[in-house]
C-alpha cells in the first residue's frame, strides 16, 4: 500500500509547491515565503550533497588518498599534492571575516588569472568563425537564373543571393555604426546609418523578446500540465477510480 501511494504523494507535494510558489502572482504572503525558503533550502542541501558525491570525492579525494585493488579496479597510488588545494579553497571562506577578508582575494585572483589567460583564445574561437562567415560575396558569378535554384551549381553566386548578402552587410554596418560613441559626426549618411541601425536593433530585440515570452508561456503551460494532467488526470483520478 505504501509503495502504491508513494508516486501520488510525491506528485501532491509537487502540486502543493507549485501552488505555493505561484501564489506570489496574487500577493507575496507567508504561504509563498514558506515555499520559497523550502525550495532554497532543498536546492542548497542537494548542491552540497552532489558536489561531494559527484565531484569532490572522485576528482579530488580519491586522487589524493588513492585506492587499493579490488574486483576489476587496479590499485591507484594517492598523490599528496592534491591536499594543497584544500587551503586554497578554504581561503575563499575568509570573505566573511572583516579582519582577514584579504585572504579570500588569493583564490579569487588565481581563478581570475586562469580565466583571463584563456580569453584571447576563447574570443577568437567564439567570434572568429562569425567574422569569417560575415565576409559574403557581393557580385553575382552567374546570371543563368535570378533566384537560387534548389540544386545550385557548386560555387555559383546568384543575383538573389547577392541581394540577400547586401541586406546582411547593410544591417551589419548600420548596427555596428550605432555603437561608435567615441566621436561626433555631422555626416548625414553616417547619422542615417546609425538611425537605421537603431531601428534594426529594436526589431532584433523585439524578436528576442518574443522568443523569451514564448519560453515563459511554455514554463507556465508545463506547470499546468503537471497539476492537471500528471497529478489529476493520470495520478489522482485513476487512483480513486481503482479503489
Amino acid at each position: 500500500m505504501q509503495s502504491e501511494s508513494y508516486p501520488i504523494i510525491k506528485l501532491f507535494v509537487g502540486v502543493a509547491c507549485t501552488v505555493g510558489l505561484y501564489s506570489v502572482l496574487y500577493r507575496e504572503t507567508k504561504f509563498y515565503r514558506f515555499f520559497e525558503h523550502m525550495f532554497l533550502g532543498l536546492a542548497a542541501g542537494w548542491a552540497m550533497f552532489a558536489l561531494w558525491g559527484e565531484t569532490l570525492k572522485s576528482t579530488w579525494w580519491d586522487r589524493m588518498v588513492g585506492s587499493v585493488a579490488d574486483e576489476g579496479n587496479p590499485a591507484v597510488p594517492g598523490y599528496w599534492a592534491w591536499a594543497l588545494l584544500l587551503p586554497i579553497g578554504v581561503m575563499a571562506y575568509f570573505v566573511v571575516s572583516k579582519k582577514h577578508n584579504w585572504i579570500s582575494r588569493i583564490p579569487i585572483g588565481i581563478i581570475l588569472g586562469l580565466w583571463s589567460g584563456q580569453q584571447v583564445q576563447v574570443w577568437f574561437t567564439r567570434y572568429g568563425p562569425q567574422m569569417q562567415s560575415s565576409m559574403k560575396p557581393l557580385f553575382p558569378t552567374t546570371w543563368s537564373e535570378f533566384i537560387t535554384p534548389l540544386q545550385p551549381e557548386a560555387g555559383a553566386v546568384y543575383p538573389a543571393q547577392v541581394i540577400g548578402n547586401l541586406i546582411f552587410l547593410l544591417t551589419l554596418l548600420s548596427a555596428m555604426s550605432y555603437f561608435l560613441f567615441s566621436f561626433e559626426t555631422k555626416s548625414k549618411l553616417f547619422n542615417g546609418m546609425t538611425t537605421w541601425g537603431r531601428w534594426l536593433l529594436m526589431i532584433g530585440f523585439g524578436a528576442i523578446f518574443g522568443s523569451t515570452v514564448m519560453t515563459r508561456f511554455t514554463l507556465m503551460i508545463d506547470r499546468m500540465y503537471f497539476v492537471f494532467i500528471e497529478f489529476f488526470q493520470q495520478g489522482l483520478i485513476p487512483l480513486i477510480g481503482g479503489r
Partner: peptide, 26 residues
C-alpha cells in the same frame, strides 16, 4: 536550447559553429 537562448544560438548556427539547433517548444 530554450527560447531565451534561441536567437543568440542562431548566430552560431549561421556561422557553422553549431551544426543543428532545436529552439524551445517550437
Amino acid at each position: 536550447v530554450t527560447g531565451v537562448m534561441g536567437p543568440e544560438t542562431l548566430n552560431y548556427y549561421q556561422s557553422g559553429q553549431v551544426k543543428g539547433v532545436a529552439i524551445g517548444l517550437n
